[in-house]
Design a protein around this nucleic acid. Structure first.
Lengths: 210, 210
DNA sequence: AGTAAATTGGGTGATTTACCGGATTGATAT
DNA sequence: ATATCAATCCGGTAAATCACCCAATTTACT
């Protein structure tokens, strides 16, 4: 009896590609959805073995969908399939109850392995994901979704808004060195090494707007 | 004799899905690439009938790749395949020499039609795209929404992706000084004075994603 | 042919970052 | 109560980057 798979991605073309690919691998695609809410309604009814869920979807994103699925249909194993490589997403996905995390940049084999592994009860994370991200999930129990301290988040926002470290220091009434220190530490926490990535992260977090 | 197709998308998984799907439709997938530069090198050598090119790719985006392909391999018909629905992309894609424009949110049929049409010499744009976008291209009235030159746009993208000036120089095969020069000039053109604002601009322009 | 823009490159000095270190406070766990 | 850890604060040094000056060559357009 083939493994029954559900596909959630807002791009129909991508879904059809994945479906064709998975069916050739012997899986049975039993349902599809193009947003988080549709995923919940449809997957709860269909009760697939595995739900493959993209993060970027309209109305309800894949991580929120995974959280809801965990509550309403705990028997469905969720695999997050995304283009986002940031560690933050991995940690958040695992906390949301996902059993797998696969990048779209990986080969199809990776997804196939993930499906087989989660069906056996394992947790599967793409090998190219830094272990630190998985460890963050395992160790930091129930820390806030955002690993940053208040001051760090404040500095991050100011950096994203285009302020230099010197500006930030004077705005916060601290020395340049301290501002740099906050900045350095938050970058280490986020495993980010350039200002550009920092800005993109701040936008995704909603701290600033593009 | 089957139509020979080239696939350019930075997500291996998506490429494999599309490949499987297209081969079932009777097309022959003769090559793949995961970024714009690889697309140029590889497609010029292989000379496919059609190149299906995603916009969002690292190092060199799909629109720039289409522009280059038009010069170096005018016999290859380029179809832009993207998730971005904004009219601006359609106009820019057609100006860049693309013969087709298909959204990932559409069904596979749409892509199949596009391939057949462009091979017959037509221009194909997904039916869900507003006509105004196509008319903007036809009306030749270049309002030049973006004052940047090609090279500058390329540098902007690389900056937004988090590359240092040194990285950019080596990736583009130019000196650090030249890369700095491009960067300085594009910042002056945009009246932007910090990296953070540059990144936000690149995101708003759709050159990169948050 | 002539003008403008694009692309390439350099030098110098100021600014910023990266990476090393430590001091103090407050919360938490044992 | 006391050890421990995270958060906050600060400094020095070396490397990288930026800002601002310059110019040669190629390309594009009129």
């Amino acid at each position: 009896m083939p493994i029954r798979v559900f596909l959630a991605d807002d791009h129909a073309l991508i879904r059809q590609g994945l479906k064709t690919l998975l069916e050739r691998q012997g899986f049975q695609v039993v349902g599809e959805a193009s947003d988080g809410q549709e995923t919940l309604r449809s997957a709860e009814r269909i009760q697939p073995d595995v739900a493959i869920v993209d993060i970027s979807m309209p109305f309800m994103n894949g991580l929120d969908a995974a959280r809801e699925l965990k509550k309403s249909a705990p028997n469905i194993r969720t695999i997050i399939l995304t283009q986002h490589e940031e560690d933050q997403y991995v940690t958040e996905a695992l906390r949301a109850g996902a059993k797998g995390f696969v990048l779209k940049s990986q080969a199809a084999d990776d997804l196939v392995h993930a499906i087989r592994e989660v069906c056996r009860g394992s947790v599967y994370v793409s090998p190219c994901i830094p272990r630190t991200a998985v460890e963050a999930y395992l160790s930091k129990r129930y820390a806030s979704a955002d690993p940053l301290s208040g001051r760090e988040r404040q500095v991050l926002q100011l950096v994203g808004e285009g302020n230099s470290t010197k500006d930030i220091a004077s705005q916060l009434g601290i020395s340049v060195k301290t501002a740099e220190s906050h900045r350095t530490r938050l970058m280490k926490k986020l495993d980010i090494h350039e200002t550009a990535s920092l800005v993109r992260y701040a936008i995704r977090r909603g701290l600033i707007e593009a």
